[in-house]
Design a protein around this nucleic acid. Structure first.
Lengths: 164, 164
DNA sequence: AATGAAAAACTACGCGT
DNA sequence: ACGCGTAGTTTTTCATT
């Protein structure tokens, strides 16, 4: 895990509220020079804390207003079957995300489709063409709220080892 | 739903692969002048197709390597209870996202925590302090794959009405 | 939708602490 | 090791065509 000081965290917070904030504005917001802000931002990227910047697209506006979560049971749940299904389903254009989980289901597939008919077709045409799919349970998503500002846990005030 | 022509879609694809691509590079990639690319990008934002740019942070690197999905049943599932729980849970620092769903559960709460102990504490301390929570089922997320490139459905080639 | 010029931002480098 | 200022380069932005 990366060692983040207060300046790193402040920069993360700024960029999380808008990943396209200019370096100059980040610097002003956190109270350091643009040079320092740029050094830190690059360091965060280089250390892998920041993986990149994603575009937040309105799914309804691009013609995918209906979301669903589909719980899938794979039988037998062998590594071969799990990985094959994961690789296949995560590449479908309707798929927004795939959770590989413990519990009574093996997968939760998050999809966004144009309408209920497409959702039904996804479940009964696409998913069931996979022989390893033993069971499917579909839940329509009425609302999906995201927290775009995950922060380090509170008690992570460990300064770098040997730091002052 | 927004009317997107091929240029809009091409710009979306470019920015989805990296929301911090410079306008100049977007223009070069899609084959128009920087001015045109900027006009279109601004239009996408103004029309609400693009809601913003998000920072992709590595959760393990910021000290939250353990993810889980927690299915929650609310009893009675009145509007009052549903909205109260939604507003409360979506603001917790451990919460990454909240799905409000149809089906046998009312919510799926996606959390990222420092370790299994924190997960257990989240479920038995935090969630159960809410009187409307009737039932909870926790699944550990082994892997979460996301598709960051949602695209308009194929058959959405309707040019703008009256367009040429 | 493109051109070209002005304004703003980015970034490399070296200095000081 | 860390933060800062300067200066050269790139990018953004806008008036004009």
């Amino acid at each position: 895990m990366a060692n983040l000081d207060e300046l790193d965290k402040a920069i993360l917070r700024e960029l999380q509220s808008d990943a396209r904030t200019t370096n100059r504005d980040v610097a002003a917001a956190v109270g350091v020079s643009p040079t320092t802000a740029l050094d830190r931002t690059r360091s965060l990227k280089q250390r892998g804390v920041v993986k990149g910047a994603l575009l937040d697209v309105d799914l309804a506006q691009i013609g995918r207003p209906v979301q669903a979560l589909i719980a899938v049971r794979i039988r037998p749940p062998s590594r071969h079957n799990i990985e094959a299904f994961r690789n296949w389903v995560s590449r479908l254009p309707d798929t927004l995300g795939v959770f590989v989980t413990s519990g009574s289901e093996d997968f939760l597939v998050h999809v966004a489709v144009p309408d209920n008919e497409s959702l039904y077709a996804f479940v009964i045409d696409r998913l069931t063409e996979r022989p390893e799919v033993a069971d499917v349970r579909t839940s329509v998503v009425y609302e999906h709220i995201r927290n775009h500002h995950p922060s380090p846990p509170e008690n992570t005030t460990s300064p770098r080892p040997g730091g002052r």
